[in-house]
């Protein structure tokens, strides 16, 4: 069953990659083939967004729930994998910006947001590594992750409005609720968003299981005096 799911995921992503290069047409007003990078950039950005929110939710379940270590491992793994997706989204975005706007980096509001997000979650990992006691580490990092979700809306909604303008293309889901995108491009984007999210949860699941094994090994050497 598990193997079958893995193959399905592999097939799904393959179709999505093929679609991005062969099925979808080029977007108007974009230089060369540069619009194709968006089929990867947008789903990765969305996935990191979902990963960080999931990390916050798991942190809250740990801190205000029964203090189940399982939730702490889930939160830490989600944030770790989320950072990887976030960095990939940033890099792909920067390459695209170089082609379109002539510079890798120009402090567009979204680039500000993503930089602060990466700084924040890197600080989260730094905090985790700076607390030797396991129980204390779980409490402190969960609180910090939740604090991040409290501050995030300010970065997300207020900062872009303050800087005033953006070169960033309209998001797929825009305030007017209308979709300004060619039908086939939309297909690939939906395929990619779902595929990358499933990919995230698969990697996340592996990461959680690995973390469980690490903790069990630490416990067994502690309580049974093994080597």
């Amino acid at each position: 069953m598990k193997t079958l799911l893995k193959w399905l995921l592999w097939l799904w992503i393959s179709i999505m990659i093929w679609g991005a290069f062969k099925y979808a047409p080029l977007a108007e007003g974009f230089i060369g083939d540069s619009s194709r990078i968006l089929f990867f950039h947008v789903p990765m950005a969305w996935t990191s967004f979902i990963a960080f929110i999931a990390g916050g939710v798991w942190s809250a379940r740990y801190l205000f729930g029964a203090r189940d270590p399982k939730h702490d491992r889930a939160a830490a793994s989600a944030i770790e994998v989320g950072i990887v997706f976030c960095i990939l989204a940033t890099a792909s975005g920067a390459i695209w910006a170089k082609v379109m706007w002539g510079a890798y980096w120009n402090w567009d509001p979204r680039q500000v947001w993503i930089t602060v997000a990466i700084l924040f979650y890197a600080a989260y990992l730094a905090l985790r590594s700076a607390v030797p006691d396991r129980d204390t580490r779980r409490r402190l990092s969960a609180a910090y992750a939740i604090l991040g979700l409290v501050v995030a809306p300010f970065l997300f909604f207020i900062l872009p409005r303050m800087t005033g303008f953006t070169l960033h293309p309209e998001p797929v889901i825009n305030p007017e609720g209308k979709v300004e995108m060619e039908r086939r491009m939309m297909h690939v984007l939906i395929l990619g968003s779902i595929g990358f999210n499933i990919l995230f949860f698969w990697i996340h699941n592996l990461r959680c299981r690995l973390e469980t094994l690490f903790e069990e090994r630490a416990d067994s050497t502690a309580f049974h005096g093994g080597s």
Partner: peptide, 12 residues
Amino acid sequence: LYRSFGRLAVLR
């Protein structure tokens, strides 16, 4: 009651 510090089990 069980309590350990890292790899050191203190209460068993």
